[in-house]
Amino acid sequence: MNIGHLRRGLATATATALIGVLSFAAPALAQSNDKQPVFALISHAAPGDTFWDIERKGAEAAADKLGARLIYAHNPAASQQATLVDNVINQKVDGIALTLSHPDAMKSAVAKANRAGIPVIGLNSGLNEWKKTGVFAYIGQDPVVAGRAYGERLNTVGAKHVLCVNHEQGNVSLARRCEGIEKGFEGKTTILYVNGQDMTSVRSRILAKLQQDPSIDYIATLGSPFAMTSLRAVRMSGRQVEVTTFDLDERVVKAIQSGKIRWAVDQQPYLQGYLAIQSLWLKATNGNVIGGGQAVLTGPAFVTKDNVAQVAEFAARGTR
């Protein structure tokens, strides 16, 4: 038994040595220089979310370039997201990129990772709270800041009453986007909750709200698929209501080009995912801290008819 164990150990040692020799050209990781680095991206995404799909693609592209492996896991419930962090700590990953939409709930998980010597970087939401959670850096766009910029832009186009369509009641970062609009916008902001898992309900409820309140002149959706459905609802209502949205996809880009959608706020999810993994690697191999103690912002950038051509080809590829 012991001999078998020893033999297996020897074989592994030889194999590792060989790999070590063969991969001498690759920069060594601080913790382990004999295996492929593994990074984890843990988000608060709901299953099938189009925005998070782009975020994941960015992270995967970075991992590919670095010859690393990416573990992606997500759960919208705070406690379950924290459990996912525990899981990857037990898997002894080389770094964790973690969204901070529930900052307080992540504190103990981050502390545990730090004790295990695993660097954790915050991304996407959590601009105001990232420092107290114990992550070493933060890359993203704060939903309140983005919402406020959105509200201020509504002021400049002379909007009077905006309908903020939230497709996931209880989601912290989505709620903050509407909050931000309310802060930045001088007109009236009304929130409408729709069931993002059921498009018929999305359209029916938006249409009902337009029929109920004739003063609404702008719609702000919090995700790109819902902007397209809003356009249909507006057309069916026969009203003059402008549609604007957070986040991009190929169809929204086309709708901006044809003038149907006024603008989309882009926080560059691909960039967030890519930079997070790249920064973890630099932290692990060279002790670098991206942002040097300050947050790194990826948005908000407004995509309008004037600048949409610059992102169109990338959106068609599914990376913007």
């Binding site: 299953p47 099938g48 979310d49 898992q197 059921d198 498009m199 698929p225 397209m228 249909r232 169809r251």
Partner: peptide
């Protein structure tokens, strides 16, 4: 009617 379909839809119905 909606042209594209998100893969996470329908849960709860």
């Amino acid at each position: 009617d909606y042209v594209t379909v998100q893969s996470g839809e329908g849960v709860g119905n």
